[in-house]
């Protein structure tokens, strides 16, 4: 798992950027440890194409030694004529998706992400995670 040095800085902020024909909804969670099943802090879900500004983690409190996960769920409502066209729409998501964290000792950082796309339901899920040190 990648890490980001936040030190005692606060607030730590998140920004999600994406350019897609789908409706994306982003979810951000903070866990005390990697084994936790339930997050202790949640950023209210948002559509990053409509609310594109920075959001504070845990209301601006210190988040040192925490696990941070960001998920974005995209749903296409316009029909695709075939899977090839759908894959091109997913490639657009891959090419434009950017999850940034800022406020730590290292300055801004673009988080890595993994993607799963599902043609049948015209959805895809992107996930990033980071250990805040």
């Amino acid at each position: 798992m990648d890490s980001y040095q936040v030190g005692n800085n606060k607030p730590i902020k998140l920004k999600v950027a994406i350019a897609t024909e789908a409706i994306p909804m982003s979810y951000a969670f903070l866990y005390h440890t990697i084994d936790d099943k339930v997050p202790y802090a949640v950023i209210p879900p948002f559509d990053p194409t409509q609310k594109s500004g920075w959001k504070q983690l845990d209301g601006g409190n210190e988040v040192q030694s925490k696990i941070f996960r960001v998920m974005t769920f995209c749903r296409f409502f316009n029909p695709f004529p075939n899977e090839e066209t759908f894959k091109l729409a997913i490639k657009q998501i891959e090419d434009t998706y950017k999850v940034s964290i800022n406020g730590g000792d290292e300055g801004p950082l673009d988080m890595n992400f993994k993607v799963n796309a599902f043609y049948e339901g015209q959805t895809c899920i992107l996930e990033s995670e980071l250990k805040l040190t």
Binding site: E83, F86, K87, I90, K114, V115, A117, F118, Y119
Partner: peptide, 12 residues
């Protein structure tokens, strides 16, 4: 005709 119900893309 399309094959498979989903595509899985690698990490970036």
């Amino acid at each position: 005709i399309d094959f498979g119900s989903s595509v899985s893309l690698g990490s970036k």
